[in-house]
Design a protein around this nucleic acid. Structure first.
Lengths: 166, 166
DNA sequence: TGTTAAATCTTGTTTGAACAGATATTCATC
DNA sequence: GATGAATATCTGTTCAAACAAGATTTAACA
C-alpha cells in the first residue's frame, strides 16, 4: 500500500452530464451521492453486456473467464477454492459449481490436496490455456473499446477515484 | 444534452492504488483498460452488497426498489412496462415478473390501458409510497456512506468520467 | 375488409446466484 | 487417543435472470 501525491491538472469537457436524468426522466435533480451510485450501476451493466457479448461465442461467463485468468496467473502453482473465492471480483457463494462447469468443459482439473485433504487443488489444463490464448486478443480489444472514450490520464484518475471509494 | 467546459484543478492523494493487484495477486502490471474494467466490476459489487444490506430488512431487491422510485417519480401518471424497462438501470428481460412481485406485496397496481389494450399501466399504491418514505432516509444514508470517501468536486469528476465511458 | 406485420406483454424453460445445512478433514486440548 | 471446535468443500433448495417462443391487440395497406 503506497502513499503518493499526484498533482493532476485536468481539463474535462462535460458533454453528457445529463445522461442519467435522461434515462430516468426525473424532474428534480438528484443528490450527488445517489447519482454516483446509479451511474456506477449503469456503467457496470453496460460493460458487463459488452464483455458477455465477446465471451458468448466461447460459451463462457465472465466469472468463469476470470477464474481461468486467475489460474493461468498461477503458472502451474496449485490454487484451492478458497484462494479463488478471495480473488474473485464478485464474491460468490458457490465456487464449487463454477469450477464444476469448467471441469466439464475440460478447462481445469481438480485434485484433492495431499497435505491437507480438506482442500482441493485446481489447475488449468492445456485446453484451458489454449482457450485463453484465443480469447486474449478478443477481450483485450473489448476492454480497449470500452475505455476508448478516455485517455490514459483520465483513466488513471478514474481508477484512483474508484479506489478511494472502495 | 448540454455542452460545457469545466476547468478543474484536482489534487488527489493516491492511497490505495494497488488494491486491485492485491486482490488478484498478479505479478505483472495490467493494461489500464483491463484495470479499469475490473475496478468498475469490483466497485459495483461492493456498492451492490451495501445497498442490498440496507434493503434486506424490507425484503426488497435493488431492482424492485428502483422501480418503486421510478413509479413515485411519475406522481400518479401511468407508466407502462416498456417505460419501466427503458428506465431501469440493469436492462432486464422479464419486468412482468418483477412487477408481479411488487403487486403481491401490495406496493403497486396494474391495469390494462384502455387506449391501447396491449399496454398495462402501473401505479404505485399508498402502501408503496409509505414504504418508500420509510426507506428514503435509510437509502440516502447508505448512498452517502458509500460516497463519503470523495468530496463533491471529486464526485462530479467521477460522474463526468463515467458518463464519457457510457 | 382481410391479411400481414408490428407492438406489447406474458409464459415456459433453462441456467445461475443466494443461503443454509451437511460432510469430511484437521487441529487443539485434555 | 477421544472429543469438540475450526476449516474447507459440497449439496439441496429456493429464488431470480436470460432467452426464446407464444398470445393479444393494434396498425398498415393492398
Amino acid at each position: 500500500m503506497f502513499e503518493q501525491i499526484f498533482i493532476i491538472h485536468l481539463y474535462i469537457q462535460i458533454l453528457y452530464m445529463q445522461q442519467l436524468e435522461d434515462i430516468l426522466k426525473t424532474k428534480q435533480p438528484m443528490p450527488l451521492s445517489r447519482k454516483t451510485v446509479l451511474n456506477v450501476f449503469h456503467l457496470n451493466s453496460i460493460i458487463k453486456d459488452k464483455l458477455l457479448l465477446s465471451l458468448k461465442p466461447y460459451d463462457l461467463s465472465i466469472e468463469q473467464f476470470n477464474v481461468l485468468r486467475i489460474l493461468r496467473g498461477q503458472k502451474g502453482q496449485p490454487v484451492n477454492l478458497q484462494d479463488i473465492q478471495d480473488r474473485m471480483i464478485n464474491k460468490m457463494s458457490n465456487t464449487t459449481r463454477l469450477v464444476d462447469k469448467l471441469i466439464i468443459k475440460g478447462y481445469v482439473e481438480r485434485f484433492v490436496c495431499e497435505n491437507n485433504r480438506r482442500k482441493v487443488e485446481i489447475f488449468i489444463t492445456e485446453t484451458g490455456l489454449k482457450l485463453l490464448k484465443n480469447l486474449d486478443p478478443v477481450v483485450d480489444e473489448t476492454e480497449k473499446s470500452i475505455t476508448a472514450a478516455l485517455n490514459a490520464e483520465e483513466l488513471k484518475i478514474l481508477n484512483t477515484l474508484i479506489n478511494k471509494l472502495k
